[in-house]
């Protein structure tokens, strides 16, 4: 048996042992990897990192609330066919010309192994993941219009992301390798910040991280800031040449960390409340 591939992250995507093991399991057992976690903890980036590490192409399927499972496999462009029959363009009898493969279909027909990212699977209807079970299991489907089977040439690596707050069907969960991306601890977070902004002064990073974790631990926040917000915020601090960060009412560029009006109000509340308490 060939020894399984080991995923170790990439230069710009840092991982920990838990995440690496999950990816390894998914690769070795050829199961889809389901990644959950708070928004902004790098779920989508993981797929890019895996594709980069394996040196393969990444196909992305962004799921929306109206997405149906069928669209991932193929769509039958009836309108085009109707037009063609009206205006006499092309060969209407050849249905194959009107079958357009979706992301899953393209991943199956690809000559090389690809990484397929099914992004934010929870956005669609509750039944959506169930409709894909068979196709993901068997890695094949049938185009009913032409009576042809599409069978995966090289089993794609499937990575599925979902937000923490929604439940997915049990039957679907059972077939996946599951990983919950934790919010990074301070040490890993410092390394992540360093990867993104290597030349930043250590003093500023420490101050910023300190303020960031304090804000994150505040009560009553609806949307707590996460990794991507922190990286953006530090980017802002850097470009605007801020040298000093202090956690008070006038924290620079607070808007990059807190995106909700109620959260900004809550923040101001707690800051002024604290001041009153001290005086």
């Amino acid at each position: 048996m060939e020894s399984p591939i080991r995923f170790k992250g990439t230069a710009s995507y840092l991982t920990n042992e838990a995440l690496e093991t999950s990816v390894d399991c998914a690769l070795a057992l050829r199961k889809p990897l389901l990644v959950r976690g708070e928004p902004g903890t790098g779920k989508t980036l993981l797929a890019e990192a895996v594709a980069e590490a394996l040196g393969t192409e990444l196909l992305t399927w962004h799921v929306k609330s109206t997405t149906r499972a069928q669209e991932g496999l193929y769509t039958y462009d009836t309108v085009q066919r109707l037009y063609d029959s009206r205006f006499g363009d092309g060969d209407v009898r050849d249905i194959k010309r009107y079958i357009k493969l979706g992301p899953l279909g393209r991943a199956f027909t690809s000559e090389k192994r690809v990484v397929l990212l099914i992004d934010e699977v929870d956005k669609a209807d509750i039944e959506f993941p169930n409709d894909l079970l068979h196709e993901l299991d068997r890695m094949r489907f049938r185009v009913t219009e032409t009576n042809e089977d599409v069978i995966a040439k090289e089993r794609p690596v499937v990575i599925i992301t979902s937000n923490a707050e929604k439940e997915l069907p049990d039957a679907f969960l059972r077939r996946c390798v599951f990983h919950f991306i934790d919010f990074p601890e301070k040490e890993l977070m410092t390394r992540i910040v360093q990867v993104h902004h290597p030349k930043l002064e250590q003093g500023l990073v420490d101050q910023a991280m300190d303020a960031f974790y304090k804000i994150r631990n505040m009560q009553r926040l609806r949307k707590r800031p996460s990794t991507s917000e922190l990286v953006d915020w530090i980017h802002m601090l850097k470009t605007m040449g801020v040298k000093d960060v202090k956690l008070d009412k006038n924290l620079p560029f607070l808007g990059t960390l807190l995106k909700k009006e109620q959260d900004l109000v809550a923040y101001a509340d707690q800051m002024s409340g604290g001041a009153r308490w001290r005086s």
């Binding site: 042992e17 838990a18 070795a28 923490a164």
Partner: peptide, 28 residues
């Protein structure tokens, strides 16, 4: 069992913990 046969856990308890967690748990 399949994952352990393939040696994904590196024959250590830590490896086993992460492998088992990835495969046995389906929800946070």
């Amino acid at each position: 069992a399949q994952a352990l046969t393939m040696g994904l856990h590196d024959s250590s308890l830590d490896g086993f913990y992460y492998t088992a967690r990835a495969l046995l748990v389906h929800s946070e």
